[in-house]
């Protein structure tokens, strides 16, 4: 009994990290986490690797206020947000131009963007497999934040508040991104699934 108490005290005073076990303990989970957010194997790997290396450098700042896992996870989340930000600078993610591909200046559908009728049989077994495959490919074509909102909403089933917090965006950013993602996905399915 007293042994356990002593250990706990020691742990509190000297929070320890065990970097040698990080890869074994966390790499797979962190990679999966990053993949659902950036959808790119190479980028996800880089983010996880960066997380481990930055964590090593910052090891002195680890005070043991959270578990080793949560501490590393917080670093990974920051890396992911930085990644979106950098991408945003290049691709100007939240510019309004994007909707211009779909709507004219009065806000009406452009002729070549008008939604086409979809067959009712998309849910029949053969057709559904094809539909999902194309949808997956279309999701991959979205930009980083677009993919992130779709994946977090539908695959991880998070609510709007959680998604905004995780991606550091406002609620109105969220709706713009979600709306735009749906416009792109729908049009991508029109082009690639309806032949």
């Amino acid at each position: 009994m007293s042994g356990t108490a002593l250990n706990m005290n020691v742990e509190k005073a000297n929070p320890t990290l065990s970097p040698k076990d990080w890869v074994k303990r966390y790499a797979d989970d962190f990679f999966r986490f990053a993949m659902t957010r950036v959808n790119d194997k190479i980028i996800a790997q880089d983010l996880v690797q960066d997380t481990f290396l930055s964590a090593l450098q910052a090891a002195k700042q680890f005070k043991g206020e959270s578990s080793e896992r949560n501490w590393l996870m917080a670093i990974l989340k920051h890396k992911i947000i930085d990644h979106y930000r950098n991408q945003g600078k290049v691709g100007n993610l939240l510019s309004l131009e994007d909707e211009g591909n779909f709507f004219d200046e009065k806000g009406h559908w452009r002729k070549d963007a008008q939604p086409q009728r979809w067959p009712d049989d998309w849910q029949t077994p053969g057709e559904q497999g094809e539909f999902l495959k194309i949808l997956q490919a279309c999701i991959h074509k979205l930009n980083g934040l677009g993919q992130a909102v779709i994946n977090l909403k539908y695959i991880e089933e998070k609510n709007t508040k959680e998604i905004c917090k995780e991606l550091s965006i406002t609620a109105s950013n969220y709706w713009v991104l979600m709306h735009r993602a749906k416009l792109h996905l729908r049009s991508c399915l029109d082009k690639n699934w309806l032949k």
Partner: peptide, 16 residues
Amino acid sequence: IAAAAAKMQQHESFTL
């Protein structure tokens, strides 16, 4: 799209 995406889950295996 929403229903299909929810069904999709992570059907890709994200393995390192």
